[in-house]
Design a protein around this nucleic acid. Structure first.
Length: 273
DNA sequence: CGAGCAACCTGCATGC
DNA sequence: TGCATGCAGGTTGCTC
C-alpha cells in the first residue's frame, strides 16, 4: 500500500496523540514481520517519552531519548490510534500503549512491514542511510533531478521507484506522475531533456500533494489513524485503468509489466521519443 | 558495478 | 462448490 502520501497521512494522524506521551508498554503478538521484532523492545522503550516523530521516505520514526522505533508499513500495514482495551482483530500484531490510555496499533495482513529498534541516528540506520531525495523537499529541484538522471540508463519508471534515487514514490504515484507529464514509463532516464524533467518534477510533487490532501489512496487495506479510508483512488487517472479511455484523448489505456509491477500508460499521450 | 527476479505473506478475484 | 492460479500501495538480497 503505503507510499509516501499514505505514510505522511499516518504520521499526521498519530502525532497529536503520541508526541510527548510516555510509553507504558509494548505488546508484540506476532514478531514475524519483514524482520523479527526485537524481543526486548518493551524493555528498551518502556517509561520513555516520544520526543520526536518523523517520516523519512516511506519509513516512520518514533524517537525517544535513548533511540528510535522505525516502522515501515510494507504493502498492507496500517497504524491506528485507539483507546486501550479495544478488542483485537486479525493481524493486529503490535500495540504501543501510552500512559494517556491510548494505544498505537499496527495491523499488517501480509507482514511485509517492519518494526525496528535502533540506538543509531535513524538516518544512519542500514535501511535508511541509502535513501534518495525526499520528493516534497526543496532538495528535489530541477537542478538535482537533472544531475541525478544523467547517470541512469534505466527506464524512467524504474528510476522513479528506486528509493536510492527518490524516497517514497511507489507504483501508483510513478504511474500517475508519468502520465501527468506525458512521459512513457520505458523512456530511458538519461534521454529525457531538461524541459521534460522539469515537467516530471512538477507532476511528482503535484500528485503526491494532491493525494495527501485527499487522505491518500486506499485500494484495499489502507486506513488512516482514525480507521478512515483515503479518497485519492477516485482521482487516479491511469493506475488500474487498463482498457479505459484516456481522460485526454480517449485512446484505450494499456498495461504491461515492468520489473514485477503493473504499468499503465496511454499509448497516444505517452509516446517514446 | 547494474539488471532481473525470487522471495517474504495473506487475501481476493477469476476461471475451470 | 472447490481448487488452482495469479495478482496486490514494497524491498531485500540473491544470481548473472
Amino acid at each position: 500500500m503505503p507510499e509516501l502520501p499514505e505514510v505522511e497521512i499516518t504520521l499526521r494522524g498519530i502525532e497529536p496523540y503520541i508526541l510527548h506521551q510516555k510509553i507504558s508498554n509494548v505488546i508484540v503478538r506476532n514478531h514475524k514481520l519483514r524482520w523479527p521484532v526485537q524481543n526486548d523492545i518493551n524493555q528498551q522503550v518502556n517509561g520513555k517519552n516520544i520526543c520526536k516523530t518523523q517520516r523519512i521516505g516511506k519509513y516512520l520514526v518514533l524517537k525517544v531519548e535513548t533511540g528510535s522505533i522505525i516502522i515501515h508499513l510494507g504493502m498492507s500495514g496500517s497504524l491506528r490510534v485507539l483507546k486501550n482495551n479495544t478488542p483485537i482483530k486479525k493481524h493486529d500484531h503490535i500495540d504501543i500503549e501510552f500512559a494517556n490510555n491510548i494505544i498505537l496499533r499496527l495491523n499488517d495482513p501480509r507482514r511485509f512491514g517492519a518494526f525496528l529498534w535502533t540506538t543509531e541516528e535513524p538516518e544512519q540506520h542500514k535501511l535508511l542511510k541509502n535513501l534518495g531525495i525526499e520528493p516534497l523537499s526543496n532538495k528535489f529541484s530541477a537542478k538535482n533531478l537533472a544531475q541525478l538522471t544523467k547517470k541512469s540508463k534505466s527506464p524512467i519508471k524504474t528510476f522513479l521507484m528506486n528509493s536510492k534515487n527518490i524516497a517514497g514514490v511507489g507504483n501508483i504515484y510513478a504511474n500517475e506522475a508519468l502520465f501527468d507529464s506525458k512521459i512513457n514509463p520505458n523512456q530511458p532516464t538519461n534521454s529525457i531533456p531538461e524541459n521534460r524533467l522539469n515537467s516530471l518534477l512538477k507532476s511528482i510533487k503535484k500528485v503526491l500533494r494532491q493525494s495527501i490532501k485527499q487522505g491518500g489512496t486506499t485500494l484495499k487495506d489502507f486506513v488512516n489513524s482514525d480507521g478512515k479510508k483515503g479518497y485519492f483512488q477516485v482521482y487516479l487517472k491511469i493506475y488500474g485503468k487498463k482498457n479505459k479511455p484516456c481522460v485526454y484523448c480517449k485512446t484505450p489505456i494499456e498495461e504491461n509489466r515492468m520489473g514485477q509491477r503493473s504499468t499503465f500508460y496511454c499509448p497516444n499521450c505517452q509516446k517514446l521519443f
